Simulated scan of single mutants.
Amino acid sequence: MDEQEGRAAGIDLSRPSAARVYDYFLGGAHNFEVDRRLAAQIAAMTPNLAATMRAGREFLRRAVRTLLDSGVDQFLDIGSGIPTVGNVHEVAQAADPSARIVYVDIDPVAVSHSRELLAGNELTAVLHADLREPDRILAGARESGLIDLTRPVGVLLAGVVHFVPDADRPADLLATLRAAVAPGSFLVVSHSTFEDQPPEMLDAQRLSARTDTEITLRSRAEITGFFGDWTILEPGAVHMPLWRPDLPPDPDERPERFGAFGGVARYDHPGG
């Protein structure tokens, strides 16, 4: 979609979109000049930001593989952005061709491109919805025919909860999602933090205020709280490269520099 098509579709091109900025940093083509300008400003302040985006994607892949190993074959990916190389359906369906994925995003461009990219894949669906409307998301997932909430499901919230301000009660939103799924389900969360961060990283995060989805940085304790009383898998909520890495991390790489914690929790019993 070029900018003329974007205007024709009613997309506000005066403000950048977090999903499209993210797509740009991952090397995608589904972004506009307004997004690229903001991305350039952020990159000038934090030259390793593209690596940070990749670290987030790699954490998500490892988490999805962990869920697959536990027998999960259906995934609800909320705040999915624009599916690019290595996204959830590619990882899941490579291991289990019958795996089903429902993607959810608030950005109409992300949703439009996702539907184009996934055309012909009958085991995927894309919903245009807001994390702040969990009941609507759950209803849409059921109506897709791909998600059976009476069976274990992987609920993925990678890099999205930090776009929900405290005023919108993110803990309550996640509690609604947790309450809707069956025992044996998993919750995956990655979330930006102010802990262990240099001032220039915090300044770059604050540039998100120029998008429609400003980032709220939270502590490890706050992020861990999003799992409720579910069982948090080892090694807990940690800097993303430290969560079950494929290879031992190099301490000289300073995993905290990526500015986000990631964790996975399992629902073992009623009331979790």
Rank of each mutant, 00 (worst) to 15 (best):
V109K: 01
G145P: 10
S112H: 15
A99I: 05
V104H: 05
I137L: 04
S70Q: 14
H128F: 07
R178H: 11
F75E: 14
G81H: 09
R62C: 03
G81D: 12
A175W: 00
L157K: 08
V160A: 13
A119G: 12
D168Y: 08
G71C: 07
T176H: 12
P170S: 08
H113V: 09
L174C: 04
A175N: 04
R178L: 15
L127H: 01
I82M: 12
T176Y: 13
V109T: 04
L76G: 04
P97K: 08
F163D: 03
A125W: 01
I106A: 13
G79L: 08
V126K: 00
T124Y: 14
A95C: 11
V111C: 09
L177I: 12
D107W: 00
Y103H: 06
D69V: 00
D168F: 14
L149H: 09
T124V: 00
D77A: 13
L146T: 08
A158C: 15
I82W: 13
V161Y: 07
P152Y: 10
A99H: 04
A99Q: 02
R151T: 05
L76A: 02
V102A: 05
T84C: 09
V160H: 15
A63G: 06
R100Q: 14
A175D: 10
L174N: 05
V155A: 04
G81R: 14
L174D: 06
V88G: 05
V153S: 05
A95K: 13
L156C: 12
Y103K: 00
N87R: 12
V164G: 03
V91P: 04
A139Y: 09
D73H: 15
P170A: 07
Q93D: 08
Q93L: 07
R142T: 13
R136C: 07
A110T: 03
Q74E: 09
G120A: 04
R62G: 01
I101T: 05
P97L: 10
I137Y: 11
L156R: 10
S144R: 06
E143H: 00
V85D: 09
G81S: 14
V64H: 06
A158M: 11
A94H: 13
L156A: 09
E116L: 14
V161I: 12
D105L: 06
L67P: 03
V85Y: 11
G79F: 00
G86C: 12
S80P: 13
V64I: 07
D77W: 04
V104I: 09
E133N: 09
R115K: 13
A141G: 04
P108F: 08
H128K: 11
A129S: 12
A94W: 11
G86T: 08
V161E: 01
D172R: 15
G71E: 10
D148T: 02
A139G: 10
V88N: 06
I106P: 02
A92T: 05
Y103V: 01
G140R: 00
V155T: 09
L67A: 06
R62S: 05
G154T: 04
N121A: 06
A171D: 07
T84I: 15
L157G: 07
E90I: 15
A158S: 14
P170D: 00
D172Y: 11
D172L: 15
